[in-house]
Structures are given as C-alpha cells and as structure tokens.
Design a protein around this nucleic acid. Structure first.
Lengths: 140, 140
DNA sequence: CTTGAGCCTGTACCTGCTACAGACCCTAGA
DNA sequence: TCTAGGGTCTGTAGCAGGTACAGGCTCAAG
C-alpha cells in the first residue's frame, strides 16, 4: 500500500460534502446514527476527514442508491469492517434486500393495474360522474 | 330509556376503528391533519360519529391503499366536497399519481437489475472477495 | 478592521402513522 | 354501594431518513 508523502490536504465537512455530493447535514446525521465514524477534530473543533472517510461515505451512498436501509448499510459495514466478511454473508444480505425490493415492485404494480384500469374508464368530461370516485366510494 | 331503542346507534372512536379496520389513533391523527372532519362531541366530550364518517374514513383508506399521499387525498376530498367535481379533474389527479407510481416502479426495477446482476456474480463461498462489496467500493 | 463564508451545536420540521401516560367516564358484577 | 375493567380524552414521543434553521465561533480576503 502506497502512502502518499505529498502534503495531504485536510478535508472538512464541506469538502467531504462536495467530493461526494452528499448533503452537508446528512454527514453529521450519519455520524450521529453511527454509520460514519466520528472523525478526529482540529484544534478549533472542526471535523477532519481523509480519503477513507470519502470512500466510506461513497460506499454508504451507493448502498442507499441501491435501496439498502441504513440498518442494512450498518450490517454491510460491520461485515466489511470485521475484515473477515465472506462473499456468502454479503450475498445473504443482498438477497434478502432483493426480495424486499421485488415485493415493493409487486405492490406498486398491483396498485398501478387497479388505478390505471379505473382511470381508463373515465370520460374525462365536465361531468360529476367519475369511475375513480366511484371506486373510492364503493360499498363493499 | 329515551334513546335506547333508536335504530341509529351512536358511534364512538373505537366503533369507527372496528367498522373500518383503521387504527384507533390514526383516526385522531386524520382529524388533526384535517382529512377527517371534527365530529360533534357528547356531553362528556366523546367524539360522536355517524355513517358519513364511516364512509369518509373508508374513502381515505382506499385512496391510501392505492398509494395516494395524504395531500392527494385532501385534494380528492376537496373536489368531492366541493360538490361540483368533474371526472376530468379527478382524472387529472389520478393520472399524475399514476405517473409517480410508474416512476417508482422504474426506479425499483433499475435497482433490482443492478443488484441482481451483481449478486449473480457472487460465488457465495467462504471467501472475502465479493462482487457486491466491490460494486459498493468501486472507484468511479 | 470588517465582511462573508464556513463550521460548531442543538433542535425543529417533514410524512404517516403508532403508542404511551395520566386523567376522566361508564358499566357490570359482587 | 363499591370496584374492576374497559373505553375515551389530551398531549407528547418515537420510527425512518433525512433537511434546515438559529446562534455562536473561527478564519481568510479586501
């Protein structure tokens, strides 16, 4: 591993936000809930970040983009931090997450079917009769 | 003795909850945020509901099941309450809701594609190398 | 020396509920 | 009649997953 001996620029919270595209306040939030580590502080109590913080935040953000909850992100990070994470363990988490994504898709598709077939019956006219309202008002 | 044999039974909050399947506290919440009207009160300050409240709550619950946000529900109710709602107006709300459902489905499908194709590369073995972790760690 | 930007903390707000505490009220059984 | 148990009332706090202030420090440029 290469240790860069050129002068390392100190990253502050705003720098980290800019480098990752993460919201400034969200970084503090992630620290509070324990997915980002507490960084060292400068003499004036400013948070001081380095490359590893950038990498970790990117990891978190990618996992969030893939729909992992912050709890799941914590699990993934715990595995990675444990150093001895196995492909099997990670695969397990990813698969169960995948299952819940598929369940959500199915839910939304069902909703989409019902709603679109109802809307399809609308005349769209200036009349008070409306199949959508009927469906919502329906006595079943 | 006076009201005892009347056919119109007075509904209290718990009755409304049972009749609709709505959570007891949610009813009060809906009142607070203004999607359920403030009902009259009994002499002992108990909320008193009738059939129209049952119908309204069912309307709200059906709209929620179809994924309408409470803001959208408020809009639908305003149209219905306005008395002069037209099929065109309702159709407009439903269509824009439909568009956001479809957008969510597309999002989730994209996520599902990425994640499932990544997981498919996992060996699932007891080894530390894992395509999922690689994807999350990847320097782009 | 001032001005503006950045950072610090704590806290409130958002959606859509759910749950609890502590006070009343009501009814049935002993 | 008393009492135990339900029900109801209010306000408030909590969940996820952030976002956005206010009020106070600190720092660099002009």
């Amino acid at each position: 591993m290469i240790n860069h001996h050129r002068s390392v620029k100190v990253l502050r919270r705003g720098d980290l936000a800019r480098l990752t595209g993460c919201n400034l306040e969200t970084i503090r939030y992630y620290e509070n809930i324990g997915v980002m580590p507490e960084p060292p502080r400068s003499s004036k109590n400013y948070r001081v970040y380095d490359d590893r913080h950038v990498a970790r935040l990117r990891f978190i953000m990618r996992a969030r983009e893939l729909g992992f909850t912050l709890d799941e992100v914590r699990d993934l990070l715990a595995l990675v931090d444990g150093g001895a994470q196995t492909c099997g363990e990670v695969q397990g988490l990813a698969n169960s997450h995948l299952a819940s994504i598929r369940a959500k898709i199915d839910d939304l598709k069902r909703i989409e079917r019902v709603l679109s077939s109802t809307v399809a019956q609308c005349t769209g006219d200036d009349v008070p009769e409306c199949p959508v309202i009927d469906a919502l008002t329906e006595v079943t």
